[in-house]
Write a protein that binds this DNA or RNA. Structure first.
Lengths: 201, 201, 201, 201
DNA sequence: CATGAATGAGCATTCATTCAT
DNA sequence: CATGAATGAATGCTCATTCAT
């Protein structure tokens, strides 16, 4: 408590609150989570949250931005690598899982909410677009290096890969597949897509 | 009006209530929608809803089942056809759009809620599994007929196709792509997957 | 409870709530009075109040209007009489007291609040103006009938009488004078004013 | 700045806080004014106020005493003068206005609160009594000097004058009369009262 | 069957006050 | 002396649900 006034301290506490919020929202959803729950989770008093976030909704936005940044980093990191795409893809699932630990619920809630909340929709759209651009750049690079055929529909394939990625989260919940199965789905499907686009044959 | 008590009448009113609920939930989300809103939407009094559904949650379940049945029919219809898969795929987008008109929001809300509600999770999982089985049967049939290679990972590809399908709903919201673009994404990606699995080469 | 839906029933309940609100606001003031207190006072649940008044502030407004109407009736009745003004004045204090039973506190709170609330200010101003006009009409009538001199400043005297009336409420609280004393103050002061204006001398 | 701890410094700061409190209470009322608002108004931190006043209520009391002293001085000054009462009265309105600049709201709030707060009631009552005595002394002096008739009801007239004075504050708000009109009301009414009491006729 | 008045649990938010620095 | 981060009690309002009509 010595460093209370530091901006460093404030930033850390802010992050701690977000972490607690993630845990709670993931467990109970936005509406069923009470500000008091979140406060208790990080050993603070209810009122303290309001020193860091203007409202419950504001906290949720901050949480979204925080989460999205992590996802973005993870995905663009994967696709920016110059190495063999398949070996990367195989390594992908573990990272994928780690980043979204328990946050799947929130992810769907975010999307649902975004259809009614322009502010949130904007954040999500911007985020998704960044990823979209990164994937497209990756595909173009592969073409230039002669690994992919020149006539593939880059935009469509990029969007398709993202859809696959997004869809895996849904599958995970709805088909309740085991982790290893999930990994195989991703690898095999991506292999199919990449294989078809590949110019090696 | 003498026949009001008919079970036919009851069934119809029940459905009308579900329709109103869909509209309202889609517009405002589950929590922000009040029972009174739904009642007003179909010209009934608040209390009347409770003659048809035990609770707000119960109404939401009924709505989910109703929606899922439609989706299931649509998807399994597509994959049960013995004809050329690609021509079907190209026809797919329109049906896809029609079925999910305005209900995308509810779809994500359903998924989010299902992570906390075992009863709903069960309904969703069963539903998704039926579709999964249908897709697998379809793939196996293609192999038997010699259209697909024998060594493809049927389970993974089936799950991948479903992920792609699910992911398209997410893309639609997050990338805000136009309809024609969305259609192309689906067609091209499926073409890539199918093409790779194809034994024609 | 048989007549629940009647508009008569609704009107009566509305009035009962206002009565309870008066008691509570008078005892504890606007801010210290909780909606629950008021509800309990008339044997209702908190939520029921909101079926009759949109908010706590709305209830306060309704209360103000109700109170003002009573005061207005009382005062204008007094000044519209064609008889001897002094005997009326002497009878005045009892009526005055009866109408403001326990509501003095609210009266001051209303005035204080009106300085920050345009809506309330308007109600109060309109009300006071009606009384002002009534008093002026009365004075003019007295002049016409030859009881008052023609050169008196009708506007000023009317405003003065009202100030005296309003000031008595303040005196009552601040000088804590007995009822009989209060009555004498009113009678004597009015006698002085009237006497000075009188043309009989 | 070395002399900060001086009692002189403390007294001045205390007064500055009261001034800020007056401004804030006048603008927003007691309940809607936050300690932080007051602190900000005089460039202090929230916590600092508590070094000078035990609580928000305590601050309000101090403010009342401060205000009352000013009013008392003003009124008793007026009535203690041995000169012509009418010329004084005519001069009165300007002083009256100056003293109550923006503080009318607080005045009514004080009165309303006093009905529930014995401590405040006591302060207000003592204050008003001092004024009452001063006015009575003045009237008696006028009688002794032969300016007023001997049979006037000194107590009642004194209380009446005070009621008139108090009532003017109410009128000012409720009739929203212009300044010049307000002045005329006071002068004319007092002239009527004094005239009636006068023995000159 | 249908109604809608009444209920009351539930929660976000505010702000006076404290106290470690 | 001064600060302002942290506290947590307090309360207005909403809305799912019930039930007398």
């Amino acid at each position: 408590m010595r460093t209370r006034a530091t901006s460093q301290y404030r930033a850390e506490l802010r992050e701690r609150i977000i972490q607690s919020a993630v845990e709670n929202f993931a467990k109970k959803g936005f509406d069923k989570t009470r500000m008091e729950d979140i406060a208790a989770s990080c050993g603070l008093a209810k009122g303290t949250l309001y020193l860091y976030f203007k409202s419950k909704e504001d906290l949720f936005f901050a949480l979204c931005e925080y989460n999205l940044e992590q996802l973005r980093n993870q995905l663009s990191r994967l696709f920016s690598k110059k190495e063999n795409i398949m070996s990367d893809a195989e390594r992908f699932y573990d990272e994928y899982r780690r980043a979204s630990l328990g946050a799947d619920t929130i992810w769907f809630e975010m999307i649902a909410l975004s259809t009614r909340n322009p502010k949130l929709r904007k954040i999500l759209a911007e985020n998704q677009n960044k990823v979209y651009q990164a994937v497209k750049e990756f595909l173009k690079a592969q073409i230039e290096r002669g690994f992919f055929r020149e006539d593939i529909d880059v935009d469509a394939i990029a969007a398709g890969l993202i859809a696959l990625y997004n869809g895996l989260a849904t599958n995970k919940l709805l088909l309740q597949t085991s982790n290893s199965e999930s990994q195989r789905v991703w690898t095999e499907t991506i292999r199919a897509i990449i294989g078809a686009a590949s110019s090696k044959q």
